[in-house]
Design a protein around this nucleic acid. Structure first.
Length: 580
RNA sequence: GCCCCGUUAGCUCAGUCGGAUAGAGCGCUGGAUUCCUAAUCCAGAGGCCAUAGGUUCAAAUCCUGUACGGGGCACCA
């Protein structure tokens, strides 16, 4: 119907003013009205035309209005306010959506496949410990965005980038050895800059079970090296790590890989429990392995930039001319000690993402990374890759609130709340919903007490309750939905019923907009609105009534609401229970 | 100093391509249960959309300045 009116407007415009005025070149809108007094649809066309035509908008509006031909589904055309044209549609036009939902079921809201591929990289926390609550927001955001883009017709891959290379991994290996050694000699101290978390103790425990004392002999002098006086110093940490390394030789790498694999197991399990499914796990180390010939991907990337003339040496380090591409300053690829920087990995990694042929590459990063984007963009631009394909979404930090107070955490001492603990405390679903319920660029206060509450104060329960209530009514009515398809839907003419149908009709465009602008929270707000309309309807009308025709039409409406609530919750990765 | 994000009701926050009288929940005040789940609903009070300019027929929305808050500016990852 909307399309029909739009066509009509174009036609009328052509007749009235000739072809010079092209409706599609002007910012003319035909939009759904929120205020029912203004009809179902409104156009600002007369306001836009007022200037080029040098005519009062109200006069233009009335001229257009008079040119509209009669249509049984168009009840009334009206000029209002400064010159809006309002269109009032028949109730029949509102019923169409219910049949559509019934027909499309789980697919209602999905767009046709568009043959485009997207890679979303997210979470990618360092594999040096379990995920904590700080990672939760990005995890949910990424997985919901992936769902949304699938709804919008994209083929989506989800990837976790494992930072399993460099200094931190060596500190991890050393930390594991110290925990392991403590099992044989309780006088051995842990280094302050090592990984203090309890998880390493249990990993050390399983290491001992598998390998017994293979990596420990009692005459170790290494532990004596740990001097509590100097222990705060990072350089001192490296010395200890190096000492453990040379003592263990090749075994050091065994310990490193053992720790890495055990921790990845924990991370993978936590993500899975959280409803997050990465289909690729990309290892940073793999970028340093010779690829086919003799060169690693990192070396090849640097050579590529070098051959294009964007690399130079200064003070024994290798630099990339990122400032040629808008970055604040040039960046180091290879340090004077011969080691590559994290940035060097990232150049190779992003090049690899491009080379895999995706149409879009999305990174979901913490907002503290925003200063990092220009140099990555610079590297892609320098190597003639289209930077429009690369999108970065920044996620602001989340605070946990308990009893009205901010929960303080310190990563250093290992005193952080893990994602698993959060799931155990408030349930996975509540955690997902509360993380996604805010715009990504908005700071988030995660109220633990509210997430646990089972009442209308908790928006997730409010939505799920609406779904359960509908299921309960449908069950009690003893009706099969497929028998309702021929119901007389024109009976759904109450104000609330019309409003609900209009909202149901908006669902596909809400999904589309949420996907397009990377704003999953829009789904939450939509579902809250829809649930609210239903609860209000529920309280004002009875559905299981004597009049069978009326009952059937209302049940058919309820079925539509139920389906959309279900579809929306599925996008969020949240269950829609039949009873509560 | 430079860069990013924010500032909307007492609190926590929505607000689409700039559209008509600014939205929700909580909290506050007052109501609704013989009835399909009261885990719900209805009504009321509550606003200088941080601030000063600009663009426009029209600005919470776009542009510029200012103030306040959060974050970032490594040969760390």
């Amino acid at each position: 119907m909307k399309e029909k009116i739009q066509e009509n407007l174009v036609k009328i415009l052509d007749n009235l003013y000739g072809k010079e005025l092209r409706i599609d070149e002007l910012s003319v809108t035909l939009q759904e009205n929120s205020d029912k007094n203004h009809g179902d649809l409104a156009s600002n066309i007369a306001l836009i035309l007022a200037k080029p035509l040098k005519t009062n908008p109200q006069i233009i509006a009335n001229t257009i209005k008079d040119a509209f031909i009669n249509d049984e589904d168009l009840i009334k055309v009206e000029v209002a306010g400064p010159g809006f044209i309002n269109f009032f549609l028949s109730t029949k036009t509102h019923n169409e959506v219910l049949k559509q939902i019934f027909k499309e079921k789980d697919s209602y809201g999905k767009s046709e496949p568009n043959n485009q591929t997207v890679l979303i990289e997210y979470v990618s926390s360092n594999p040096t410990g379990p995920l904590h609550v700080g990672h939760g927001r990005g995890a949910v955001f990424g997985s919901v965005l992936a769902n949304l883009l699938r709804e919008a017709g994209f083929k989506v891959d989800e990837e976790y980038y494992i930072n399993d290379f460099g200094r931190q991994m060596n500190i991890l290996a050393a930390s594991l050895w110290l925990r392991y050694a403590q099992l044989f000699n309780n006088e051995i101290n842990m280094i302050k800059n090592g990984y203090q978390g309890e998880y390493l103790i249990s990993i050390a425990d399983s290491l001992k079970q598998i390998q017994s004392d293979k990596f420990y002999s009692s005459q170790e002098e290494v532990s004596i090296l740990i001097d509590p006086e100097k222990d705060e110093d990072e350089a001192f940490t490296d010395k200890i790590v190096e000492a453990i390394h040379s003592m263990l030789g090749e075994d050091f790498f065994f310990l490193r890989n053992f720790a890495l694999e055990e921790i990845l197991k924990i991370i993978k399990k936590d993500l899975l429990d959280f409803g997050v499914n990465h289909n690729y796990w990309f290892s940073e180390s793999s970028l340093y392995e010779p690829d086919g010939s003799v060169k690693s991907k990192v070396d090849k990337s640097i050579e590529e930039l070098s051959s294009l003339g964007f690399v130079y040496e200064k003070e024994d380090a290798v630099w990339f001319r990122s400032s040629d591409f808008g970055d604040d300053k040039d960046r180091v690829l290879k340090r004077s000690n011969g080691e590559h920087t994290y940035f060097a990995s990232d150049v190779a990694y992003h090049s690899d993402k491009y080379d895999r042929g995706y149409d879009r590459v999305i990174n979901i990063w913490g907002s503290d990374h925003h200063g990092y984007t220009p140099r990555v963009n610079a590297a892609m631009e320098a190597s003639n890759r289209d930077i429009k394909k690369l999108e970065v979404v920044y996620i602001q930090f989340a605070n946990l609130i308990r009893a009205g107070e901010k929960v303080t955490m310190s990563t250093r001492s290992g005193e952080f709340i893990t994602l698993k603990e959060l799931m155990d405390e408030v349930t996975t679903e509540a955690a997902r919903f509360f993380y996604i319920n805010r715009k990504a660029d908005q700071h988030l206060d995660f109220d633990l007490d509210l997430a646990k509450e089972q009442s209308k104060d908790n928006p997730l329960y409010y939505i799920q309750y609406a779904h359960a209530r509908i299921c309960s009514v449908l069950k009690k009515s003893n009706t099969m939905i497929k028998d309702l398809i021929d119901s007389d839907l024109s009976l759904l003419d109450l104000e609330k019923e019309v409003e609900i149908q209009k909202i149901l009709k908006q669902y596909p465009s809400v999904v589309e907009r949420a996907a397009k602008s990377s704003e999953p929270h829009l789904i939450c707000y939509y579902l809250k609105d829809l649930a609210g309309l239903f609860h209000s309807y529920y309280n004002s009308e009875k559905f299981i009534v004597e009049d069978e025709k009326l009952m059937n039409s209302r049940l058919f409406l309820l079925n539509g609401i139920k389906q959309v609530l279900l579809n929306g919750l599925l996008v969020l990765g949240i269950n829609a229970p039949d009873e509560m």
